[in-house]
């Protein structure tokens, strides 16, 4: 396992901004005094004249981004998920969402894998908040490859995009040939007994769960949902029909995130058991990120357990 390359998606975000900055000069980048952490610092270093630090004032930054976009220019604004989606929620809704402006919100340090900073900085609510904004696109990449490709797609997207990145280095699961399309889920493994629908760093866990289930003779389908909104309902409903049971896995509250989105879709169109794995309506706390993922049950073994539960609920 030691030779598996790991990269934090926030680092891929920073690298993608630099690549995009080399290809086009029609956008600027804003941060709120966290450039070194969000990795917009990479862009700042490469293109200092195209980077603006708003200081510790996320609400102002978000509305400034809206103003820039209102003049017809592209803009990326970045902070931790807690502050971009949480503190500045109403600015995201009213300044960006309501006029449907072309702003990319680069939200890093999402989920409990923030680690030692503890609960005040571990945002497990951002997907839920962003999902309620009409017209908001939400992308939660699984690895470096997907994070970069998603940034390219977001830059050409018409409308606001909430990009969710993590602090913890995670295995690179996709090769350069991986094709990312906004709004499209990807079936990573074929299977007939149960479907694991995963997002973000849980995609790698889902792939491990697939192997564990296989050893027990259970055939699991694995679907990566990077775009949580708009949800690829086609791939979800197909899985519901063909496997009859679904497990969702996300590093986010079980309230309002991917699990809720999938459950809502399935309940309305083709009801099958949906068992959600996520942060179980709790605040996080300080600790090493990898140990917190163990403690909060965000591992392949936990997916396996939920998969068996989902299968047992089949009629």
């Amino acid at each position: 396992m030691a030779d598996i390359k790991t990269v934090a998606t926030r680092a891929a975000f920073g690298a993608a901004l630099v690549e995009l900055g080399e290809k086009r000069n029609d956008f600027i980048v804003l941060d709120a005094d966290l450039a070194a952490a969000t990795q917009t610092g990479m862009f700042k270093k490469a293109f200092p004249e195209r980077f603006y630090d708003c200081g510790i004032a996320e609400q102002n930054m978000v509305s400034i981004a809206a103003g820039v976009a209102a003049t017809g220019k592209k803009v990326v604004c970045s902070s931790f998920a807690m502050f971009a989606a949480g503190r500045a929620f109403e600015q995201v809704r009213n300044s960006i969402g309501y006029p449907h402006l072309n702003v990319i919100i680069g939200a890093t340090h999402a989920g409990i894998s923030v680690g030692e900073d503890g609960a005040t900085h571990q945002c497990n609510e951002d997907i839920a908040l962003m999902r309620t904004i009409p017209g908001m696109t939400i992308i939660n990449p699984a690895d470096e490859t997907e994070a970069k490709k998603a940034m390219y797609a977001a830059m050409d997207h018409d409308g606001p995009v909430y990009m969710r990145f993590g602090r913890l280095p995670v295995p690179v699961v996709f090769g350069d040939d991986y094709d990312f399309v906004i709004g499209k889920g990807v079936e990573l493994k074929e299977g007939n007994d149960v479907t694991i629908v995963a997002t973000g760093l849980m995609v790698n866990e889902a792939l491990q769960a697939y192997e564990l289930l296989k050893q027990e003779g259970i055939s699991a389908r694995v679907i990566n949902i990077a775009t949580i909104k708009p949800l690829d309902t086609e791939i979800i409903l197909k899985a519901a029909k063909e496997t009859g049971a679904i497990v969702t896995a996300e590093e986010h509250s079980i309230i309002g995130g991917l699990g809720s989105a999938v459950a809502e879709c399935v309940a309305e169109e083709y009801p099958v058991p949906v068992v959600k794995l996520g942060v179980n309506d709790k605040f996080g706390h300080s600790g090493p990120a990898v140990k917190l993922l163990d403690e909060f049950g965000l591992r392949a073994v936990n997916i396996v357990e939920k998969a068996k539960k989902a299968i047992s609920m089949k009629k």
Binding site: R50, S95, P99
Partner: peptide, 24 residues
């Protein structure tokens, strides 16, 4: 030129427009 109504946000949007004009 800008949707507004939630107080305090409009000035920031105007600042963003001014920043855009200056930058570009």
């Amino acid at each position: 030129d800008m949707s507004s109504g939630s107080l305090g946000q409009g000035i920031s949007c105007a600042v963003g427009m001014a920043l855009s004009a200056k930058h570009f």
